[in-house]
């Protein structure tokens, strides 16, 4: 039974500790089990107050599930909770060693959009490289998750934020490249 407003903290609502590396199967089990308890359909005959609580609890749970099951959204949630600014930082964190490649890709994209077949193959090549970088970033991210869970160091979070900004930047590039090829 829902007897009051639910916790607003996304980890607390699942009854788990704040951690960046999560067991997603366990999270899903908890999501389903809490849903069975809180979903408004389970309280269709309850009082208006109970129903409102159920709706509130369910809505928060659903949002928590959406955020925590996604590693990037989860990390951003924790960063925000620790007072980090997670706004758009595009361009700022472009790794200097990539500046040249990014510039070339943008040129190739421009040309490919104008119908240049040679440029297209260049885009394909660059896309493969950037996709590789993305998966490197993801494994680096997972390492930082474990590091943070062990020591809760603020320095880890700073590095995580820089990594996520870099990821966002690369992801936008990859998205543009894919759209151009499609």
């Amino acid at each position: 039974m829902v007897s009051g407003p639910p916790p607003s903290d996304y980890f607390a609502i699942f009854g788990i500790e704040k951690k960046l590396a999560l067991d997603l199967e366990d999270l899903q089990r908890r999501f389903y089990s809490n849903s069975r308890e809180w979903h408004p359909d389970r309280h269709a005959r309850a009082s208006a107050q109970q129903l409102a609580w159920a709706e509130e609890a369910s809505a928060t749970l659903n949002d928590a599930w959406r955020v925590l099951r996604d590693p990037v959204a989860r990390a951003e949630y924790v960063l925000k909770g620790e007072g980090f600014d997670i706004g758009e930082q595009r361009g700022k964190d472009v790794p200097p060693e990539l500046l040249e490649e990014v510039f070339e890709l943008n040129m190739a994209l421009e040309e490919a959009r104008e119908g240049d077949a040679n440029a297209k193959s260049e885009v394909v090549r660059a896309l493969a490289k950037f996709e590789g970088l993305l998966s490197e970033i993801d494994s680096e991210r997972d390492t930082l998750f474990v590091e943070y869970d062990a020591a809760s160091a603020r320095d880890t979070l700073s590095r995580l934020r820089a990594l996520l900004n870099r990821r966002k930047y690369l992801q936008n590039l990859v998205r543009d490249a894919r759209a151009t090829l499609a």
Binding site: E56, S58, A59, T60, N62, R66
Partner: peptide, 16 residues
């Protein structure tokens, strides 16, 4: 006249 999205499509409901 720009839309600021608050709840994305395919969000589980109830959603807030």
């Amino acid at each position: 006249g720009v839309v600021s999205k608050l709840i994305h499509r395919n969000s589980t409901i109830p959603a807030t």
